[in-house]
């Protein structure tokens, strides 16, 4: 597989959220606005790339039996780093993402890529895979955030498009489920037409 293909697969063909249905908790939880979605997506990308690189580097040193615990420790370390750095330099974003930052640890996407990809492939492939998957995740979250923000409060990234209050339900919990459901259906449609 060429590196380019390896990189672009995360956006539509193997999109972590729309196709693989991984990491749905943050995808639903933080996407009340496009900005929050993007912030969460980039934080996850950082964790994904870093843990993929480290796992790929030390994979030969780790005995098979303690593989999963080792991966979890590595991932949790990077998550804590993100948490501390974000609290220091982006306190507003940190406040609105809240609980979902420490929960990157249990995002099945991160552990899944470490286990299924990085523990088998070389450094460059793992790096590209992490970057592609992470940005695909960020893309999905930003898109869902933008849809919910547009329908819910008539704005995208805080810039108002439509006058009025919008459909509040899209900012609330039900809108997250329904919005994601229709975006997945749309992805199915695009994939079939390819």
């Amino acid at each position: 597989m060429s590196q380019l293909k390896n990189f672009t697969k995360g956006f539509i063909k193997e999109n972590p959220v729309f196709v693989l249905l991984l990491g749905l908790c943050p995808a639903l939880g933080v996407t009340t606005s496009a900005f929050n979605g993007l912030g969460m997506g980039l934080a996850t990308t950082f964790v994904l790339v870093s843990s993929n690189v480290v796992v790929s580097l030390i994979k030969s040193q780790i005995p098979d039996k303690v593989r999963i615990p080792s991966f979890i420790v590595i991932i949790a370390s990077f998550v804590t780093i993100v948490q501390l750095v974000m609290e220091a330099f982006l306190p507003d974003l940190f406040a609105s993402l809240g609980l979902f930052i420490p929960l990157i640890v249990v995002n099945c996407l991160v552990l899944g890529r470490a286990e299924a990809f990085a523990s088998k492939k070389n450094l460059v492939s793992s790096l590209v895979d992490g970057l592609g998957m992470g940005l695909g995740f960020a893309f999905a979250l930003t898109l869902l955030g933008a849809v919910r923000e547009l329908l819910g409060s008539g704005a995208i990234f805080g810039y108002p498009f439509i006058q009025g209050d919008g459909m509040l339900v899209f900012v609330l919990a039900p809108g997250a489920f329904i919005g994601l459901g229709y975006l997945i259906a749309l992805t199915n449609l695009i994939k079939k037409n390819e």
Partner: peptide, 20 residues
């Protein structure tokens, strides 16, 4: 197009609406 996950998510959305 709605079979599987999309339909399930929309149902979850309606459930969430009820819980509100």
């Amino acid at each position: 197009g709605m079979q599987g996950a999309p339909a399930a998510l929309v149902v979850a959305g309606i459930l969430a609406l009820a819980f509100m």
